[in-house]
Amino acid sequence: MAETILVKQEIEPGKTEQAKDVFRAVGEFKNTDAAVEVLEKEGVYTESAFLQRAEDGDHVLYYIEAEDGKEVYDVYQDIMADPQGETEGMEDFLAEFQDVVTGEPFVADVEFLYHMTTPDRP
């Protein structure tokens, strides 16, 4: 059964508007072979990103459905360590991504209550 996790990552101070542009650009390549390969390596079924503005700084929140949260993180670490590696076609995005976020992503300090999907989900 898939895990449902909420991951949080800090946006570099002063770069929120740039970060919004970077993350919105995902829509331009989300169905490319490179993007699909990354999702498959991570074991991710669904990933969505949200902007959270707070007094202590702005963050990206990622809603993720995946087979194994640890595998998602491990693949993420591999990609960030070698962005030119197996992500052909995503190099520009990864460079821009690394410019607008700071620190490691972490599982958000939230209490999971429920996750529901329709059995006929496309």
Rank of each mutant, 00 (worst) to 15 (best):
P119R: 13
T102E: 14
F112A: 11
V22L: 09
G69R: 06
L39N: 08
K20Y: 03
G57I: 06
A108L: 15
M80C: 07
V22E: 10
A35R: 02
F97R: 06
Q52L: 13
V107M: 11
A81H: 07
P13G: 08
E96V: 01
Q98H: 06
Y76C: 02
V75Y: 07
E37N: 14
A54G: 14
V101R: 10
E37A: 15
F93M: 09
L94N: 05
T32V: 03
Y114D: 13
T4I: 14
E17N: 10
Y114S: 15
D82F: 03
G14W: 10
N31E: 14
Y62E: 03
A19P: 03
L39Y: 09
Y45A: 12
E55V: 06
G89C: 04
M80E: 08
G85I: 02
P83E: 06
F50E: 06
V60H: 04
D74G: 01
D99S: 14
G85S: 13
F23H: 04
I64A: 02
Y45R: 15
T87N: 14
M116H: 12
G69A: 13
M90A: 07
R121P: 00
E47T: 14
N31C: 00
E28S: 14
E37K: 13
E67P: 00
D99W: 05
S48P: 00
T16M: 08
D58V: 08
T16F: 07
D120Y: 08
E86W: 02
Y73W: 08
V44H: 02
V72W: 08
L61G: 05
V36C: 01
R24K: 15
Q9C: 02
A34M: 08
E65P: 03
K20D: 04
V38K: 05
E17G: 01
K70R: 13
L39G: 06
Y73I: 10
E40D: 12
A81F: 05
G27V: 01
T118Q: 12
A34P: 01
V22M: 09
R24W: 08
R24L: 13
E17S: 14
E37R: 15
R53C: 07
P13N: 09
A34Y: 04
Y76L: 06
T46Q: 11
V44Y: 00
V36Y: 00
F93K: 09
L113E: 11
G85L: 06
V36R: 13
V101S: 02
Y76D: 07
A49T: 11
E86S: 09
Y63S: 04
N31D: 13
A108S: 13
V7F: 02
K70H: 12
Y73L: 11
K41D: 08
M116L: 15
V100F: 04
E71W: 01
K20H: 03
I5E: 11
G14E: 12
D99R: 15
K20W: 07
M1P: 10
D74R: 14
K20R: 12
D56N: 09
G43F: 01
D68A: 01
V44Q: 04
F112G: 09
D120H: 12
V72A: 03
T4R: 13
N31Q: 10
D99T: 06
T46R: 13
D92M: 11
T87E: 10
V7G: 00
M80H: 06
I64P: 01
P119F: 08
E3V: 01
M1G: 12
V107F: 14
F106W: 10
V38W: 06
Q18K: 15
A19D: 06
